[in-house]
Amino acid sequence: MHFLELLVELLLMPILAFVIGLAMVLMMRRIGARIQRRVGPPVLQPIYDIIKLYSKDTQISHGLMHEIGIIMAVGGYIAAETLLPVPGLDGLADKGGAVTLAYMLMIPALGMALGVGQCANPNGSIGISRALTAMLAYDIPFILVIFGASYVYGTTNLAEMISIQQQQGVSSWGIVQMPLLALTALLILPAIMGKHPFEIYVAPAEIATGPMVEMSGKFMGGLFVMQCFQLYTAGVIFTTLFLGGGVYWITFLPKIFLVVAIPMSVAYLFPRYRTEDVLRLMWKWPMLLGLIGLAVVMK
């Protein structure tokens, strides 16, 4: 039937995600610079960085798993993007749904963790330990959000969630239906994206950027690509769950950029949290909000 069409969609979705992700990285760095009253990087800086990293003459590898780890990290995101419906492109949204997506997103993290492990650098392992702990911290409220949304829309299919919100107008948007859960999601968004103030796992001065300590050249480049996907995914998921998704790119893009911009703008104002403080914070306020939100939603 529309097999060819689907194939094109599947190809297009990761590419779009990457391009938009690049722009988001730029935006993030610009926001950071502006907050610090700097000029910030030029427009094409993310591309420069990636090209430079891929074109390094020395690509230091610590073994096969180090390489496979990076492949898993990038490949996993490429695959995950096809589960994420965007205007005009539903991809495989009906084959998996929100729960599948949430677990698919752990594949890149796992790949990266394995790759870092192979490097035999304790700084990397410490970073992974902290990153996994942080994941434990934010995933618990995140799962409340996923559950709440699935409950409200009566489905875990993201494409259906979008169509429900689109058909019934703004009043049916997630943010109106379940404002507390939206707030929860917003609170944990910087942690999901691994950004300030929850980036203890990179802690450059302390554990030499943690997981990235042995990453050079294209390995680092792969992680830069992954970061683009990461920001994009976070933005799109939030938009899909709470902001009605989008039928047109023209309305969709501002939403996802806004979603990413909000935590970024706030985040740079805070100092880093320690690991146990991340846990304590995440398990206190977002969790509380999430539970109340759920109670409200489920009556």
Binding site: L10, P14, L53, Y54, S55, K56, D57, T58, Q59, I60, S61, E67, I70, I71, M72, A73, V74, G75, G76, Y77, I78, A79, A80, T82, L83, L92, D94, K95, G96, G97, T100, M104, I107, T155, T156, N157, E160, G217, K218, F219, G221, G222, V225
Partner: peptide, 29 residues
């Protein structure tokens, strides 16, 4: 809102394939 692992796994494997392609865009490690 079901699940089709054939699609999911296939797309994951193809994703890994593309990941490999991206990886080999860079120089020899």
């Amino acid at each position: 809102g079901g699940l089709d692992m054939i699609w999911i796994v296939s797309v994951l494997l193809i994703g890994f394939g593309f990941g490999t392609l991206v990886f080999f865009l860079g120089g020899r490690s």
